[in-house]
Design a protein around this nucleic acid. Sequence first.
RNA 1: GGGGGGUUUCCCGAGUGGUCAAAGGGGUCAGACUGUAAAUCUGAUGGCUCUGCCUUCACAGGUUCGAAUCCUGUACCCCCCA
Length: 427
Amino acid sequence: MEHIIEELRWRGLIHQTTDEEGLTRLLSEKMCTVYIGFDPTSDSLHVGNLVALMVLRRFQRAGHRPIAVVGGATGMIGDPSGKSEERNLLSPETIADNIAGIEPQLRRFLDFRCGGNSALLLNNYDWMGKFGYLEFLRDVGKHFPVNVMLAKESVRNRLERADGGMSYTEFSYMLLQAYDFVYLHDHYDCQIQAGGSDQWGNITAGIDLARRLRGVQLYGITCPLLTRADGSKMGKTESGAVWLSPHKTSPYQFYQYWINVDDADVGKCLKYLTDLDRAQIEQLLQEHGSNPQQRIAQRRLATELTRLVHGEAGLQIAQQATQIFFGGEIGQLTGEQIEAIFADVPSTQLPRSLLDPPGLPVVDALLAVGLVKSKSEARRLISQGGAYVNNRMVASQDATLGQEDLLAGAAVVLRAGKKNYALLRLA
RNA sequence: GGGGGGUUUCCCGAGUGGUCAAAGGGGUCAGACUGUAAAUCUGAUGGCUCUGCCUUCACAGGUUCGAAUCCUGUACCCCCCA
């Protein structure tokens, strides 16, 4: 087994470490406990969190114990790191809901039942919540020189902005996260904190605090952000972030996001985000390079990640949907499969009796599901060869739908152009 | 307060009595090409009970066989003079 640090290094996952030599030694001496915090700012994690999730997973696979901390307490304050403006406070109820959404997602990446290095899932509200303000100021605040805090990038950036400034609340955020590290050290023997590169300031604050309070040496490691070759952040589409929750981003959309990753970025994604080892990735990239149009690397990336995030069943649906949405025959699908595959597609319900002879004109059906704005537009579409029923081109403007067009006895798939789908349910 | 110019279909913009559902461009949609990319090319782009019919050119009224185009009034916008 390769040393975890070497592994992370070849994958490009090390942005900075506080003491690489010491860290490497520590990690080879014994089972270590590593923690990463996750902000409950939404009810789902997103693609931007994947790097951190995979880093924890890698630590666990290398025999160490991962702790995922959800920020029930810190989320109430708001981490100013990387944010250009003061954030709105989330209500305690929202945070509780968000944590409930995030927890099961974290569980997919880590093993919670594997003996000594089983993962832990903790909520920092459990220890921060009962801290009194005066105690906190005396026990924690006293150890933070304001001049050092002011020098932190997360603070400085904000203060330098013309429209800048930040509240005392956000200013004190780093004390909370710093204390988390100390707490985890005290109670779980946690010596390492990992995080995105924007967490450097918060991590080092924790290390400093531990040194002052306990006289111990803790370690920090940050990972690069997942960016594209052009420098933009990954995980964003025109329609917003790519989420891990199937309710916010369907398995199909998730799968497609990775299929569409640029050639220039696919190697990095494989290294950052999959369990594939070095030999596998290198071979994959080589195969891909000699035959890029097949998108071998992207397919594998999408497969690995969709399976990890949505499970085998989610992957199946995503792949079936891909086949269908890219011209494949809509074969014998069950009603359930149709529901899952067309989950993203707008649907309209009409009475089933419309399919009785003489049938429902396709023109009317296209209008009813909203694929066209008028019947004229529908006729135009058909005459240009852009209208499809169950993925078969509609040949005539006079075509009608009958009972025989029903899929699984319940629905008809209509399509305008290459990728505009709508589901017509007949009940 | 006086004088002049303007308001066109999703946007810009032509059109000054019939050949106008209205040039051209943009956008959008479809097709071809392609690696589910970009670019390019082709076609379409008010509605309908569609070889025809109906409704659109700021709004209301009028002239005329016939108006986006002429006249009157109303609203809004721009410019010049005081």
